[in-house]
Design a protein around this nucleic acid. Structure first.
Lengths: 231, 231
DNA sequence: ATCCAGTAGATTTGCGAAATTTTTCCTGTC
DNA sequence: GACAGGAAAAATTTCGCAAATCTACTGGAT
């Protein structure tokens, strides 16, 4: 995060991004400039810059000269996202297990502890919590951040965020909860022990989450629609 | 390509993108608004939108409130890019070989033929040619476009373009040429025959290109600098 | 009743001037 | 001679308005 040179535009970009990922701006919503200008208290041009950035991140889609829309969600998109995530996440975890040093291991233990403590405190409702989502993201990042590949890490984070939008959409419909989270612990232990099994665990973890999302929130998504790729 | 709803901003974005990828705007160049306004004949806001898009594509980097710079090049970045490309390219090729139908095969043959014909016509200088670069890109895309994963295809194209910038930078210093291009033919044949060997061939193809780029143009790149990732 | 065309209203896009920030360069002091 | 302080200059960022474009609605003809 930039602490000093934070421009108005990048600030709006960050806030809109958060609003889209947390589904405060719902998929498919039309983004009218007048309303957004009011909401974020900035001018047309500044908004336009933020929307252009989000558009390049495929969080909003621009429809020619007909304005911007929050990127739609679909089962096809979620499945596609999931497959891509498994591919990338396995690779960055493999590389991290190869290159990771003492500091890496310590960071993993620390971020797991933070996540686990909050989870215990919140009980079954952790899944709704903003702060838990942040710590969960930080834990997963700590697992793979030793892979020495900025390119892969950027792509991974990008996909993680996009997938997180689906997870949050499903959270309010969820009725099945694990009493205690054992998955993350197992992934961490296998990773720290450099067991190749960790790769399968992380892959299964991602796929299971996706299956749950589809089970509980699949009715919210468009079935056939495929998010257009700009080719 | 949009033929109708082409806005001024997306047009400038496209042209600047091309200028960066073809190294007409050199890596590290400071992008001053006054000069760009003159060059592309547009206003501040329009430029700003295009730059924001390019920034999200990591083709330009924004330095807080100190303007924009064409993304720098480095050996570390090229190697990182190469590894990521091999991972993705193998996967989309594998999937395409699984899902590809008759039309896919026909498109591969057609785009190979177009590339091969131009190469024969141009002789050893094909490597400099803009049109050949386009046909080369189209051939590689045709190999993998049956993979049914918009997410992976977008990421692949993104990395391909970024790597292409390095290839073009090296072309003017190149002294070693293959008399006849046999690599692409071999990749195509193995792909159409659904031989798993195709995956290794494409991986080796990418790595060899990178090695040549480093051999002939390595002196142009910054050694240590690592392109900062926005995390 | 349906379809097409033309017009009014709403929305987006583009522009250049003002405000803010960074950089440069000059001056005075240690 | 080097270094900090400060003011002028240059560049970037932001803003509100005018022009272009799209959407919706009304009215008339088939």
């Amino acid at each position: 995060m930039k602490t000093k040179g934070e421009t108005r535009a990048s600030d709006v970009h960050t806030r809109m991004r958060a609003d889209i990922l947390s589904c405060e701006l719902k998929p498919g919503d039309k983004l009218r400039f007048e309303a957004l200008k009011d909401r974020y208290d900035v001018s047309f041009s500044t908004l336009r810059e933020a929307l252009a950035r989000l558009s390049a991140e495929s969080l909003v889609v621009s429809e020619g000269q007909r304005g911007f829309v929050v990127a739609p969600v679909s089962i096809a998109d979620l499945k596609d996202l999931t497959n891509a995530r498994v591919l990338l996440e396995r690779e960055v975890l493999r590389l991290s297990m190869e290159y990771g040093d003492d500091k890496w291991e310590a960071d993993i233990l620390a971020s797991y502890h933070r996540m686990d403590r909050l989870q215990t405190r919140l009980g079954a409702h952790y899944y709704f919590d903003e702060e838990w989502a942040r710590l969960h993201g930080a834990f997963h990042r700590s697992l793979v951040c030793a892979c020495k590949s900025p390119v892969l890490l950027d792509m991974r984070l990008h996909l993680f965020d996009r997938a997180n939008r689906y997870r949050r959409m499903s959270s309010q419909f969820r009725t099945k909860w694990r009493p205690k989270d054992v998955e993350h612990k197992a992934i961490m232990d296998a990773t720290l022990d450099r067991e190749p099994e960790a790769l399968d665990l992380i892959g299964r973890h991602i796929r299971e989450t996706t299956e749950n999302v589809i089970e509980f929130a699949g009715h919210l998504f468009v079935q056939d629609e495929v998010t257009a790729s700009v080719v």
